[in-house]
Structure formats: structure tokens, C-alpha cells
Design a binder for these strands. Structure first.
Lengths: 210, 210
DNA sequence: TGTTCTATGTGATAAATGTTACTGTGTATA
DNA sequence: TATACACAGTAACATTTATCACATAGAACA
């Protein structure tokens, strides 16, 4: 199977001309689970498109916190990389690979040119901005208006959606870090959820029952 | 003074051709302090540019909360209105007038056309997306990583920047609502700040000393 | 098998925040 | 002036979250 067939499946909205351009110009990269693709403060000169694997996007606190924001999945682009690339600014976020990743990097200059040249690229970029902005607003909701128990449920739901499964491979410590709280709090809240029949707890795994 | 001279001052990056287009096509509106320009769930068909006055943007909670996100000021555009207008989506935020406002509304169809036609418009739109995204990320920081005392200081700082003054006309209740906490908590924390010499408290007014 | 390590459970306690109740005080207005 | 009202201060208490201390259980491995 050719790359172009792949692209067409992963980015169905892209026009054939755009896919040709991508194929001739893009830089391919792959990363292993656990790799950090992008760090806070790092300069960005490329827009990133994900073709395979799973990436998690975090906002880093001053004292080493890693607050989970959203997933980046095949067929999606890093909104922050688009934003920063536009002005060769430094990254405001940190990106960590959860599942081995393949991605395409598009230099700033091209990404700008394509905005005018390819309608489907223009729409993809705006769609990316829009959906991420809305997702971040939902995150604001969850922290601004909800207590930890609801935030935990929100967190678990989003992870289930990302992996399209009901068995989440997460330790309590990991969850605590990504919600910026302590493990004990998460253990207790999960226990309560188990008593309410919402989950079943295993070692390194949380089974959603809803 | 003609409108075009005004525009040129308020939106210095706009090209003359763009300003001409705006003048011939835009709809002018004005609102009084206290008016709600946009409600959560409302349909948006126009992009909004502010030429005068002050607007506050809130995220609304399910139980009636009004969480303050950021200010919208002369020379700025509502990023959410741009995003939503693109797909005639409903608003994710609520906009309230703080100080009598004059604004320009640009229909969806034009705003799209201009992206391709006027470089300065294209750059303005992307700049708006970028700066708002970054501002919202800072808001996430403040709630995710900081306790209420620091959040209050952050809040006061942003308000001082918005009005370019050190005397904030805010009641404790107002602040509490916008930070989604209770008045008593704000009163206590402000009192502590006063004891630390950071502010001086008056009725309906907080004087910043730093 | 025995040892070590990581993950989890849980009690005790501290600190931050939320809630209720009541007081006083300045402002506006009848 | 008298009254009503919004705003602010504060005590007492409830709840939530953070921290410390330690116990147990399963997995990995010598």
C-alpha cells in the first residue's frame, strides 16, 4: 500500500493535490512510547501531523506538575504547533508519547503557503484550532466548577474514548499526577466509585462498568 | 474625524483596502454596561470586533456559575465568535459589557472571503486565535496548579492591566462569583493581603499597592 | 522459595475551602 | 431623619483535599 492511500484514509478531508504536496515535502518521524516529543519552552518550527499512535498533551506547572489536557491521535494535528510555528514561538505545552507514534512534520513556510493554496488545508487548520479551543474550554469547566470526584470521572471517560476500550491501563499515581492531586485521594475516590458500581479495580487497570 | 482614521488607530495592522471593505460592509452596534452580548448556547453568525469599551468573557457552569476567562478590548476580536461563525455553531461562552461598548459585526461569508483576499485580515485572525489560546492556557494553569490565594492575586493583576489603573471597582461578591468561590473566602484572603501590605481595602474598591 | 519493588488500601491528622449565621457600617432613598 | 439595603468582617462549623504513616498484596526476579 502506498503512503498516499494511507494518508487518504487517515486524513480523508485532504485533497489529492495536498496529499501530493505532503508526500514530496514532509519529514517523517517516529517515536517510542514514553518519549517526550515537545517540551515547554522549546522552539517549534514545524507543524505536526499524527499518522499513528497516541500522544498526550500536558500543561506543565512551575513545580514540576504535569496537568493532562488532551489526546492527540491519528488524523489530528497539534494545534499548539500550528500556533507557535506561525511566529516561531516557544511551546506552551509538553507532548508525551503513550503508544508508539509516527508523525509528519511540515515546515513553517510550507504550512503558511498551503493556507492560501489548498482549501482543504485551510479548513483543516481552522477545524483544528476550533476543536482544541473547545476541548480546552471543557477542561477549564472541569477544574473551575467540579470537585475531584467529578473531575476523576471526566478524566476516565476521556481516556476510555481515546483508547476505545473499557479497560484503562493506569496506575493511581499516574492519574493523580495528571490531575495534579495525590495518589491517596485518587485511591479513595476510585474505591467509592467501585462501591457505587461504576468501576472494578485491578492492579494497574481500571475497568469501567458504565 | 472619519471612521477610517479611527479604524486605522484601533486596528493598526489592517491594510487600507481591508478598512474600506469593513466600512462598506460592517454592521455597527453599541451596548450599555451590564448588557449581555452573547449567551452560552446562542447561535453566532458574525465575527465581532471591538472598537470601544470593555467586555468580559465568561464560561458558564451548569449551576449558574460565571467563571471569568478574559477581557475583550478595543482593537481585539472575539476568538470564539470567529471559531463559531466558521461553522455557524453555538457559543461556548458568555460575553458581558463592563464599560459601554461599540463594536462591528462582520457576517460569516465576508469573514471567510477576506481570509484569502487580505493578508492583514488573515494574520489578524490567526493572531487572535493564538493569543486567546495562550491566555486560556494560562487560566488553566492558575486553576490547575494554584490555590485560591494565588488565583486571587492573578485575578487582581489581570483586572489592573485591563483598566490600566490600581483602583479596582470590584465588590468581594463579584470577585467570588468570577472565581467560582464564596464571598467569605475572598474577604478572608483580601484581609490577609492587606495585612501583607499588598492592597488597601475600601468599600467597592480595592487599591493595589504593588 | 525468598526477597525486593511497585501498587494499592486505609487511618490519623492538618490545612484549605465552603457554609451558616450574625454583626456592623456606609449609602441611598423614602 | 429614619429606614432599607448592599457590602464587608468574622466566628463556628462542615466538608474536601493534602500529607504522613504504615500495612498488605501482587509481580518480578535472584
Amino acid at each position: 500500500m502506498h503512503d498516499s492511500d494511507n494518508f487518504k484514509k487517515i486524513f480523508p478531508s485532504f485533497s489529492d493535490e495536498l496529499i501530493d504536496e505532503i508526500e514530496t515535502n514532509a519529514i517523517h518521524q517516529s517515536y517510542k512510547a514514553g518519549d517526550v516529543i515537545m517540551r515547554t519552552g522549546q522552539y517549534i518550527n514545524n507543524t505536526i501531523l499524527v499518522t499513528k499512535g497516541q500522544i498526550k498533551i500536558y500543561r506543565e506547572g512551575e513545580n514540576g506538575g504535569e496537568f493532562f489536557m488532551y489526546y492527540l491521535q491519528p488524523g489530528q494535528a497539534c494545534a499548539v504547533s500550528m500556533i507557535c510555528a506561525t511566529r516561531s514561538q516557544t511551546s506552551q505545552i509538553m507532548a508525551k508519547v503513550v503508544e508508539d507514534v509516527e508523525l509528519i512534520m511540515i515546515p513553517l513556510s510550507l504550512m503558511e503557503k498551503w493556507m492560501m493554496k489548498f482549501r482543504s488545508w485551510y479548513e483543516f487548520v481552522l477545524f483544528t484550532y476550533r476543536t482544541r479551543f473547545e476541548e480546552v474550554l471543557e477542561v477549564v469547566d472541569s477544574i473551575a466548577f467540579r470537585a475531584m470526584d467529578e473531575r476523576l470521572e471526566f478524566y476516565l471517560k476521556r481516556h476510555a474514548e481515546a483508547c476505545s476500550c473499557k479497560d484503562l491501563k493506569l496506575s493511581h499515581q499516574e492519574i493523580a499526577t495528571e490531575l495534579n492531586t495525590s495518589r491517596e485521594v485518587i485511591s479513595r475516590l476510585l474505591k467509592k466509585m467501585e462501591q457505587r458500581g461504576l468501576v472494578r479495580l485491578h492492579r494497574n487497570q481500571i475497568e469501567l462498568l458504565t
